[in-house]
Amino acid sequence: MPQSIDHIVIAVTDLDQAVRDYETLGFTVLPGGEHPRGSRNALVVLADGAYLEIIAFSRPVPGFRWWKVLDEAGSGLVDYALLPDETLDADLARTRAAGIEIDGPIDGERLQPDGTRIAWRSARPPEPDIPFICEDVTPRALRVPEGKVRKHANGVTGVAGVTVAVRDLAASVARYRALTGLEPVARGAVPGLGFGLAQFRLGRQVLSLTEARSDACESLTRHLGRRGQGAFAISFFGPADRCLDRALAHGARLEIVREL
């Protein structure tokens, strides 16, 4: 079963400006490359091996959900991926056996600026309340560079968690159980804040599922209405006294938390 976050996707309308802004936020940003579908990306690779994919599209891709959300709702978080625990094929078989509909394996590739081809395979659920699964075909170090590029001026070292907006908490909890083979470590309503919460722990990382239960949770309700289910916010490990200016994050909710 998938057991760690591979990457988190932020779709933007202006990739060059997003690169400059994320550098201003204190991240080391690397050029990624171009995909056959007409998108290009940049990467923020963290010391724990997870990374941010900042992606933009040079032309419409009507059948692709990331482009559709970007086109309709603007820049922001659109998805996230987990690494398979064993192989994509094994995890795909177990996920389907558990009753989860998921498409794949799907071949993916991009060309780096120097012409190097990077390839991977993925499995993607039609409904993005749960993440997709991604497995490398070419060496992982090509897709996820190592070394000093993983150090960031803002002190961020890794992904602490992803908060996911869902419409039906009970249904999504069941789907996460099936996908990860794990039980939630916490579950219930958050008094006074108007939302329900369930959390799954993947090693150091926490996946938090949130369901709006009253008008008090305006930001979550607005997100679900505009962007649909899926990634809502990201927490990073790092110096908790540092703030990440949301005005520079191109619609993504980002925060730094101290590792306990």
Rank of each mutant, 00 (worst) to 15 (best):
T163H: 10
L182N: 01
G155N: 09
P139F: 06
V144C: 14
S122A: 08
V156L: 08
P145G: 09
L179H: 01
T180F: 01
R124F: 02
N154F: 04
V166E: 12
R175G: 02
S172R: 02
F132G: 08
V185D: 06
G158I: 14
V137F: 04
G161Y: 07
A165E: 12
D136H: 14
A123V: 03
L169M: 11
G158L: 12
P126A: 07
K151F: 10
V149D: 06
P184E: 00
T163S: 15
L142T: 04
A186Q: 12
P184G: 06
V164R: 09
E146L: 14
P139E: 05
P184C: 02
R121Q: 12
N154Q: 10
P128T: 04
A178N: 07
E127A: 08
R177W: 00
E146R: 15
H152E: 05
G181M: 03
V159E: 10
V149M: 05
V149E: 03
G181F: 01
V144P: 06
L169Y: 07
S172W: 03
V164D: 06
D168S: 13
Y176T: 02
V149S: 06
A171Q: 11
P126K: 03
T163G: 14
T163E: 13
P184L: 00
S172N: 09
E146C: 04
L182Q: 06
P184S: 03
R167T: 15
A153N: 09
G161M: 09
Y176L: 02
R140L: 15
V166R: 15
R177L: 00
R143W: 07
L142W: 10
A160N: 11
T180E: 01
Y176G: 00
V173Y: 05
P145S: 03
G147C: 04
L169G: 08
Y176W: 15
L169R: 11
E127Y: 06
V156R: 12
E127Q: 13
G181A: 01
G181I: 07
A160Q: 15
D136Q: 09
V159K: 09
E146P: 05
A174G: 15
V159R: 11
N154V: 11
A165W: 04
V164L: 13
L179Y: 00
V173F: 05
E135I: 03
L179R: 03
V166P: 15
L142Y: 08
V162K: 11
V149Q: 06
P131H: 07
A160I: 12
P125N: 10
V144F: 03
P125C: 06
C134A: 07
L182W: 01
V185E: 11
V164C: 08
R167A: 14
P145R: 11
A165P: 14
D168E: 14
A174M: 01
A174S: 13
A141I: 07
C134E: 11
T163V: 11
G161T: 06
A160Y: 12
T138W: 07
R175C: 02
A186F: 02
E127D: 14
A170T: 06
S172V: 03
C134F: 05
V144M: 08
R167L: 13
V185N: 03
A186C: 00
V144I: 04
V166D: 14
S122I: 03
D129I: 02
